[in-house]
Nucleic acid binder design. Structure first.
Lengths: 242, 242
DNA sequence: CAGAATCCCATTCGATACTG
DNA sequence: CAGTATCGAATGGGATTCTG
């Protein structure tokens, strides 16, 4: 016989199409399980991640996630919109285009992503050699920051990943990061690399700037740069059976 | 032309079948994305949740997650084992059986689940009326605990959800929870309900014990019980567009 | 009880082509 | 640029049966 669950789900979907998008997998009050219904589907979390530092266009996201198809990106953005995590907005200036942005609640996913990242980084199966997007690098810096060390220091750092430029503001025990605007803003020093992966050996592997193989260059007071690098600490991997 | 990515994935899987289980979705160094490959698949997180308070048998898990099929549970437990999150162990006493247990690293998922839960609970789409398992209730109490209030108090509470019995120990700003053993352990007071949902209006809705509709009963000093209930605070929902 | 094996349908995904 | 439409391939998952 056909499953009764399928029938009921179909009926619920007929009554309210949006309801079918959530509460679809588990009929469970567990909030963590519900969260996985919202962000657990393939591609959803990387999309959210790419929006975490500000709204972007459809094709920006595609460029950052080259393996995603237009179909899946469209579907996921629709789900995220109906879930209240993302909004779609048409802007006219400086150019007419559509912007996908996180809602305030969607931005609340950063602590979730930080917790996920801190946990999975302890796995020996995690491979930091794989390609990294600029946004991933920026968020990882926020996650890996040793907060007390950023409490008694104020600094502005330019972070340039290929053509993408960001401004980091150290202070109050945190690292605020925003995309750099058109007109160059003043910074105390700059870190510049051809891609996001070039930052990893220096920031987390503590390889000296300019040592063999590092593709990262700095501009400005070397002592400030070193103090910045010292803000970050990578946890050791566990020896896990399996 | 056939995609080259598919060919490479197939080749990698042929060399090492286990490698295919992870790094399957995204070729991305982002640790949060990697975490989703480990726990983002359907049913994986609820399974982990059910193991969070101690090892359980295959049929225990099925009983807690009635909508999961034997095939899927088998597959997920295999993935979790090869990912280093779960171990399978044959025990002989008191009865010969197989126990699935979280590894130390797997237990490290509790902060992740707490972050997911805190976030998704703010959604107006989250429905706490749905059924809740006893383990979900226990974990939600740990998450919702107002830590400072548990700093200057020591207490032992019996938590009985239908036939399942737990012992909670309040102290040091935390709530430790373990399954109760065979021989009754001493407790300062007891909260007892027919199912996990019966606890919600009292613990989080602050409905008085014994008021109309509450199906929860307490045993022991009423002042202590009230102090326990006051440890928990449910955050308000956001008004989210969409 | 604790799964493994098989069958088969439904869904999903990726690739490609096309559109306003 | 921002998608839609379509199609074939791959995957997922439920039901069922079988085994130690």
């Amino acid at each position: 016989m056909k499953s009764r669950k399928v029938t009921e789900a179909g009926r619920a979907a007929a009554q309210d199409p949006k309801a079918a998008l959530h509460g679809k997998w588990y009929q469970d009050a567990c909030a963590a399980a519900f969260a996985m219904e919202l962000i657990g589907e393939r591609w959803t979390l990387p999309i959210v991640r790419e929006l975490m530092l500000g709204g972007r266009r459809f094709s920006d996201i595609r460029a950052s996630l080259p393996a995603i198809s237009a179909k899946v990106l469209t579907e996921r953005l629709e789900s995220l919109e109906s879930g209240g995590i993302v909004t779609r907005r048409a802007v006219t200036a400086p150019l007419p285009m559509k912007l996908y942005e996180l809602t305030d609640w969607g931005i609340g996913l950063e602590p979730v992503m930080a917790a996920l990242g801190r946990w999975s980084m302890e796995s020996p199966l995690h491979n930091p050699q794989l390609p990294l997007t600029p946004v991933s690098l920026m968020l990882s810096m926020r996650t890996m920051l040793d907060s007390p060390k950023a409490r008694d220091w104020q600094a502005r750092v330019g972070l340039e990943v290929g053509p993408q430029r960001f401004i980091g503001r150290v202070g109050d025990g945190a690292l605020a990061i925003a995309r750099a605007g058109e007109n160059p803003e003043p910074t105390d020093f700059v870190l510049r690399g051809p891609d996001a992966n070039a930052f990893l050996p220096v920031l987390y592997g503590k390889r000296p700037l300019g040592s063999a193989g590092t593709r990262l260059e700095a501009e400005g007071d070397a002592a400030l740069v070193q103090r910045f690098i010292d803000l970050f600490e990578l946890p050791a991997k566990r020896r896990v059976a399996g």
